[in-house]
Amino acid sequence: MPAQISLDALKVLDAIDRHGSFAAAAEALFRVPSAITYTVQKLEEEHRIKVFEKRGRRMVLTPVGRMLLQHGRQILQATESLSEMAQRMAHGWEAQLTIAINALFPVEVIYPLVKRFQQVQPDIHILLRYETLAGTWDCLHDGRADLVIGAPGLPPEGRSYDLLPLPLMTDNAFCYVAAPEHPVCQLEQPVKRESLRRFTSVVIPDSSRRLPALTYGLLESQPRIFVPDTDAKLKAHLAGLGIGFLPRFRAAPYLARGELVEIEVDITRTDHTHHLAWHSSNQGRALHWFIDALREENPFAEMMEQGQALR
């Protein structure tokens, strides 16, 4: 089995290249010049390669040496990051935090919180993802998320969760909409369920993988267009592709400009209380930083109040 290239040898190559000479590298690494020379010679002998060659009075990297340095620096950076990650975890900070957001809400609402967090721990990876309906609980239950914002109703059994109710959905929080040229707008209101079944509904499917799926405002035998998120659903309504419920805060500006029309329908949409949710056993400092920040300020509630004001 061939000898492995040591991290020390890579550090020596990096120091020689950065500081311009063996002597300067030795000074930077607090070693004697002979130790630097020995490390390079050992590397060349063990692997039967030439790392440096003499040009005039200078020693320069060969193509092989340049390749070793390029990839070696990636390895050195990775080991440094690994060490920093281990130190953070030893002090309770996660290497990565995954936050799942109910697809009703635009993810950019929490960007100001993420920006603040970056000032505290800039090296922790933040993964933001959308989930829909029961999919919010499903991803938390299966460990695909550390924190869920806007999980509807009660959590599934089998795990212990901490919950913080969020006043996201108030009375009249949803409106049934269509583009003004859509034929449903010509019908007498409230439009009966039998009449609504004739028209395509725009739907964001439940993202749950294991838990029973939830649906709101759908009728049997109604044709459907499935879209990935609320932005796509809004655009589908604006394009006249279908009808259905939208959060009022998302629809309000378009209703005000006449680009959408609110339809009174013979359907009652009942929504659950929404929660901030996480596993009780998760004591990660990044997780609890976001929990505390969301307790102090609820940007989602502020967004919904602005939507109500536009009515």
Rank of each mutant, 00 (worst) to 15 (best):
M1K: 14
Q4R: 13
Q4C: 00
L7N: 15
L10K: 11
K11W: 07
K11E: 15
S21Q: 07
A26K: 05
F30A: 13
Q41N: 12
K42M: 06
L43V: 09
R55L: 11
V64K: 14
G65P: 10
S81A: 11
E84T: 10
A90E: 05
W93F: 15
A95L: 00
L97S: 09
I110Y: 00
I126D: 03
T132E: 01
A134F: 06
G135M: 02
G135Y: 03
W137S: 06
D142T: 00
D142C: 09
I149V: 15
P156N: 12
Y161P: 05
L163V: 06
L168Q: 03
T170F: 11
A173M: 02
Q189M: 11
P190D: 04
K192V: 11
R197N: 11
S207A: 07
S208Y: 01
R209T: 08
T215Q: 10
L218V: 00
L218H: 08
I225H: 14
I225C: 12
K235N: 15
L241Q: 06
G244V: 14
A252D: 08
L260C: 03
L276H: 01
W278T: 06
F300M: 13
E302H: 11
M304A: 15
E305R: 14
Q306M: 10
G307H: 05
Q308S: 09
R311T: 14
